Simulated scan of single mutants.
Amino acid sequence: MRLEALKSNSEAFSSSYEEEKEFSIEKFENRLKEDVSFTFGAFDNRQLLGVVTLFMEKKNKLKHRANIAAMYVYPERRRSGIGRSLMIEAIQKAKEIEGIEQIYLTVVSNNKPAKSLYHFLGFNTYGIDKKALIIDHTYFDDELMVLFV
């Protein structure tokens, strides 16, 4: 799913398909084993439909912050509530972790459905990262969002 997401929606991720296509299964497995991150999946009859990852900051001065990354739902399953359910699970997990006060995420500025979902869930924009990504000589701005819990 990760490689498909990087290939089909390259503007939505700072990582690229070209960088990660040679990663071993063990590298992906190790990501799932990290003690400062939680990856949530949505399934239908054991078929993975979508994922999102919540990770905590490690540095003492930033330990009150969590981040949401790697949000992806297969295109044919979008607009079915899967993304909302995944985000709600990640937000709930962050609220259960002692000391977490705010949750950050970044979304490409032209992704209106994702931005709408994040605003619905209570995230607010606090900045724009101009020309955050460049893909095939095209720049994309990132919208920086935060939810105070």
Results as ranks from 00 to 15, higher is better:
M1L: 07
M1G: 08
L3E: 05
L6P: 05
L6F: 05
K7L: 10
N9C: 13
N9H: 14
A12K: 00
S14D: 12
Y17I: 06
Y17M: 02
E18V: 12
I25S: 04
K27A: 13
N30A: 12
L32R: 09
K33G: 02
K33Q: 15
K33I: 01
E34K: 14
D35A: 02
D35G: 07
S37D: 09
T39S: 14
F40L: 11
A42T: 02
D44T: 09
R46P: 01
L48K: 11
L48T: 05
G50M: 05
M56R: 08
H64Q: 04
H64W: 09
R65T: 15
R65D: 03
R65S: 15
I68A: 03
A69L: 08
M71L: 11
Y72A: 01
P75F: 04
G81Q: 04
S85W: 03
M87Q: 04
Q92K: 11
Q92A: 14
I97S: 14
E98R: 09
E98W: 07
Q102T: 06
T106L: 09
K112S: 10
P113Q: 04
P113G: 02
K115R: 15
L117M: 13
N124E: 13
T125P: 00
G127H: 00
G127K: 01
K130Q: 06
K131E: 05
Y139K: 01
F140Y: 14
F140P: 00
L147W: 10
